[in-house]
Simulated scan of single mutants.
Amino acid sequence: MHKKKVLSFGELLLRISPAGVEDESAEKQPMLLYMGGAEANVATALAGWNVPVKYCTALPDNFMSKHVIDYLEYKGIYTSSIIHSGSRIGIYFLERGADLKGKMVYDRERSSFSELTTGTIDWDKVLRDVSWFNFTAISPALNQNVADVCLEAVEAASKKGITISLDLNYRSRLWKYGKDPVDIMPQLAAYCDVIMGNIWSANTLLGIEVNEHIHDKKSKAAYLSHSEKTARAIIEKFPKCKTVANTFRFDGSGNHILYYTGMFTENQHFASPEFACEGVVDRSGSGDCFMAGLIYGLYNQLPPQETLNYATAAAFGKLQEQGDATGQDVFTVTKMGTAK
């Protein structure tokens, strides 16, 4: 019997970053190109972990899209749900190692994905062999039309009894079309079974209360307690939701990075091991890797603590990888997660 697939829906982006001095080709080629986009990163991770996954996006009908699709298929991702429309692939420019809140520029206006409208995607066909639908808050941040497409998608998935997961990615450079996130996201979150983000994005996107003075406490126990409080508030506000995960990453003095997470499910709060390192190769895609890890554990019906440990180890490991998507395999992630 063929296992049903995870469907990841969102915009594929090409990322351009300056080459570092350690790159041998830097003198000849000062810029490096990566395949990006949060939902594509999730699909890439899941395919690498032997979860059947397909990716739905919109790409122009040109030679560059053919190369992109070839690459996705090479990674083991099903691409039959990619539609051809519009005239360009979205791009973003990112300084090496930079946080997405830092040195980053979007060039995605009038991209194929951003021009999607309701009625364009045949959701009945796309969701036919799917048991899980994943999307992020980045898509509805683009414009009202794409927000409407996301609502169309979660309504269709919900009618089919498909598990729906949402990453509360907040991008302040988006949300420029006259709507605040809290005007749009709660309607989408109401359809979701799994919600992942952090206590601050839950506040910005869903209107969940956050303690503005939490940083003053400088306490892991206080952050994890707030994680549980936020999760309970989300589940109370959106009763369909059964699992909420919150991540915490702190950049300390020098290059010190501290990372841990919390997850609330089955009326119990779980905390991950604490990970720390000196320096980061690439911050981009770490949260996507965590989302993929959550889906991996829940899809395979792993115990909650094991699921959280796996997702956290995967996200932390991604910080030491160049590019947007992880290349870690299950053994590597599991070993890191159980070594703590």
Results as ranks from 00 to 15, higher is better:
residue 105 V to R: 09
residue 218 K to Y: 01
residue 62 N to V: 10
residue 74 Y to I: 08
residue 302 L to G: 01
residue 255 N to V: 00
residue 274 E to I: 15
residue 193 D to Q: 01
residue 84 H to D: 05
residue 267 N to Y: 05
residue 8 S to L: 04
residue 61 D to C: 02
residue 43 A to C: 04
residue 196 M to C: 13
residue 218 K to H: 07
residue 38 A to Q: 14
residue 285 G to E: 09
residue 283 R to V: 06
residue 330 V to E: 12
residue 295 I to F: 09
residue 168 L to P: 02
residue 110 R to F: 04
residue 178 G to S: 06
residue 271 A to V: 07
residue 121 I to H: 00
residue 286 S to P: 06
residue 22 E to Q: 12
residue 189 A to M: 10
residue 202 A to D: 00
residue 85 S to K: 14
residue 259 Y to Q: 10
residue 314 A to S: 14
residue 265 T to I: 07
residue 248 F to L: 06
residue 182 V to T: 15
residue 215 H to G: 00
residue 148 D to Q: 10
residue 187 Q to I: 12
residue 148 D to P: 02
residue 118 T to W: 01
residue 172 S to H: 07
residue 199 I to M: 03
residue 13 L to Y: 07
residue 276 A to E: 15
residue 43 A to Q: 02
residue 79 T to Y: 06
residue 11 E to P: 08
residue 101 K to V: 04
residue 206 L to I: 09
residue 332 T to W: 09
residue 320 Q to E: 05
residue 146 V to A: 06
residue 127 L to H: 07
residue 124 D to C: 11
residue 102 G to K: 15
residue 219 S to W: 04
residue 77 I to Q: 12
residue 67 H to N: 13
residue 109 E to C: 00
residue 28 K to A: 07
residue 224 L to W: 01
residue 65 S to E: 06
residue 100 L to C: 11
residue 154 V to H: 04
residue 258 L to I: 11
residue 19 A to H: 03
residue 223 Y to G: 03
residue 166 L to N: 00
residue 261 T to W: 00
residue 285 G to H: 11
residue 301 Q to K: 14
residue 108 R to T: 01
residue 333 V to C: 06
residue 307 T to Q: 02
residue 336 M to C: 12
residue 229 K to V: 05
residue 286 S to N: 08
residue 258 L to Q: 12
residue 302 L to Q: 15
residue 25 S to M: 11
residue 108 R to L: 06
residue 6 V to C: 12
residue 99 D to P: 01
residue 252 G to D: 09
residue 311 A to R: 03
residue 94 L to V: 12
residue 78 Y to N: 11
residue 169 N to M: 08
residue 150 C to I: 04
residue 227 S to D: 11
residue 240 K to T: 14
residue 246 N to T: 11
residue 179 K to E: 01
residue 291 M to Q: 15
residue 296 Y to T: 03
residue 70 D to H: 15
